[in-house]
Amino acid sequence: MLTASIIFLVLFSFIDIILGSVIIPFKDILKSIFSSQEIESAYNTIIFDFKLPKLYTAIIAGASLSVAGLLMQTVFRNPLAGPYVLGISSGASLGVAILLLGFAGILPETYNLTGSWATAIAAWIGAGLVLILIFLISLRVSNVITVLIIGVLIGSAISSLVNLLQYIGSAEKLKTFILWTMGSLGGVTKEHFYIIIPAISAGFILAIFSIKQLDSLILGENYAKTMGVNLLITRISVFTATTLLAGTVTAFCGPIGFVGIIVPHLARLIFDTASHKILIPASAIIGAIMLVVSDIISQLPGLTGTVPINSVTAILGIPIVIKIILDKKGF
C-alpha cells in the first residue's frame, strides 16, 4: 500500500513538473534529469531552478503538515485538530509579522522574508506558544468541538493582531507579508533548504521516536499513564516535533490550511490502522500527494497566473472537514 502511494506521488510529481506557466514536454524532463548531454538550457533552468525546488517544497510541506496534524490529533485526542484550524499556523504568522512589521526599523529594507533563520525562529516561537496555549485549554475543556471553536477564535484574534501590525510596517514590507500569508510554494529557493531540511528532519525524527508513546495514547491519557508512559516527556517531544514541522513550513510557505487536518483521516481510512508506525509514513506520503496535486490544480493550463495554494487546499479540504464533523465518529 505504501509502495502504491509512492508510485502515485512520483506520477503526480512528473505531472507537476510538466504543467505550469511553461509546459515542458515529458521527454525533455527525462533528458534534463537523466542525461548528461546538453539540452535546451531554458528548460534546464526552469526545471532545476524553479520547478524542482517548488516540487520538493510541495512534498516536504505536505508531508510535514500532515504528520504535524496526526501528532496533534493523537495528543489532543481530537479528530479535528490540525496546525491550521487550531491556530498554530496563525501563531507562526504572528511571529513572522512581529519580526517583519514590528521590528521594521531594525531590519534592513531589503530583508528577505522567506529566506532567513530569523523568520524560521520567529515562526517556531509563535507556533510553539499557541500550541502550548491550546493544550492548556484542552486540559480544561474536553469537548472536541469546543476546543476547535476556541482554536478558531485564537486564530482570528491573532489575525487581528497581525492586521494591526500591518499599519506599522512600510508599504513594501506589507506587500511581501500579504503575499506570504496567501501561502506559496514558489518562494523557496535552494538556499532555504539548508534551513528547511535539518528542521523538518529533526521534527520527523522526534515523531518517529515517539511512535510507541503515541500508540499508547490511543486509549487516552489515563490508560497511557497506567502503562507507565511519561506523559510530560511525550508531550514535550511531540509538541517540539509539531512546532518544527508546522512552524518551518509556515515560515517558508505561509499558512497552508486543511492539509494537516484531513490527511491523517485519509491515512487511517486507506490503511485501516491506528498504529503510528504506519500512520506517520502514510500521512507523510498522502500529504505530499495532496499538496503536489493542489499545486497542479493551482497552475492548471488555462488559468492566468497561479492561484494561491491556500485557496486550493481550502476548496479540497473544507468539504472533508465538514464530513468529519457530521460523522462524529471520532478517530
Binding site: 490511543i218 486509549l219 490503511f271 485501516d272 490502522t273 491506528a274 498504529s275 478517530f331
Partner: peptide, 11 residues
C-alpha cells in the same frame, strides 16, 4: 473506549 481502525488484537 471509542477508537476507530483498531482491531481487538491491536488494542
Amino acid at each position: 473506549i471509542t477508537a476507530g481502525h483498531l482491531t481487538v488484537f491491536d488494542l
